[in-house]
Amino acid sequence: MRIIRYSEAINEALHQLLASNKKVFLIGQGVTSPWYVGTTTVGLIDRFGPHRVFDTPVSENAVTGLGVGAALTGMRPIVVHPRMDFMYYAMDQIANQAANWHYMFGGQMSVPITIWGIINRGGEQGAQHSQALQAIFAHIPGLKVVMPSTPYDVKGLLVASVEDDNPVIFIDDRWLYNYEGDVPEELYSIKIGKGIVRRKGKDVTIVATSYMVYKAIEAGKDLEKEGVDVEIIDLRTVKPMDKQLLYNSVKKTKRLVIADASWKTCGIGAEISATIAESKLLTTLKAPIIRITLPDAPAPASSVLEQAYYPESKDIVLAVENLLKYSCDNNEKCDY
């Protein structure tokens, strides 16, 4: 194995997918640009030509629909939206067409499409260049939603998304692109729907998605210095959710913090909380569940406000400390 960056792992997966399967093609804005999709598509156009690597006009709805239509004939398109904010334009094709097609016609045809949305936030980009829409897509029956955090996972889950017979919303975060990690050179896939324990611990379970996994790991190191032993779960797939992994961990720790950098209301944290609340584990919890999310507000442009907007590891540390205070029966010390 070698150590490569997250963005390089995506690029390698794309090269290997296009080389190994003639049915795979990549379509979307900026796929022939050296910078548009963060170097992840470098070299593809020279190797595979302008039809299998189709750089498109800004027509998200029709471009996504083109992918869905091609998928109905057995092709394996990857449609990229370099800023997932623009996916709202394609909602009809994603939610009405792709998601429903298999069910609506009684299972006769499936839509093996990968719709790749990039969270491209920070840098004072403001409300329409910053959004993380995982919860919106997870709500819709017929869609799978994956959010890889490590270079190893991003390659394996991109391959798995393309190999899956169903529409998969593949979401990555530009803030992950320079993270490094071990990545095998060969083509491999990671099973969709399986989370992973990033740190074993006994005191508190932290469930995190995507970039927040790294924030949770930082928090875990700080908390370790205080003698607190957290368990960190990287969800990897938002839907279908690895409920058993959650149950196993919460059963052990009896305390739960959820860190997902999208909005709070009806978000991924809400779904995980409800999953635990509906289980037998509810009555075994030693403290309420805490969600670390974005505030229910659009993304601001001001960098001062951005600092207040995006959760950090210190927010996770504080949440864990609060949970532990609560469980000491000194509830008045607790901030909530």
Binding site: N61, A62, V63, T64, G65, L66, G67, V68, G69, A70, A71, L72, T73, P77, D92, Q93, N96, Q97
Partner: peptide
């Protein structure tokens, strides 16, 4: 809704 799907099949 099906117009781009026909374009996709053609693609």
């Amino acid at each position: 809704g099906t117009i781009p799907l026909a374009v996709g099949v053609a693609y």
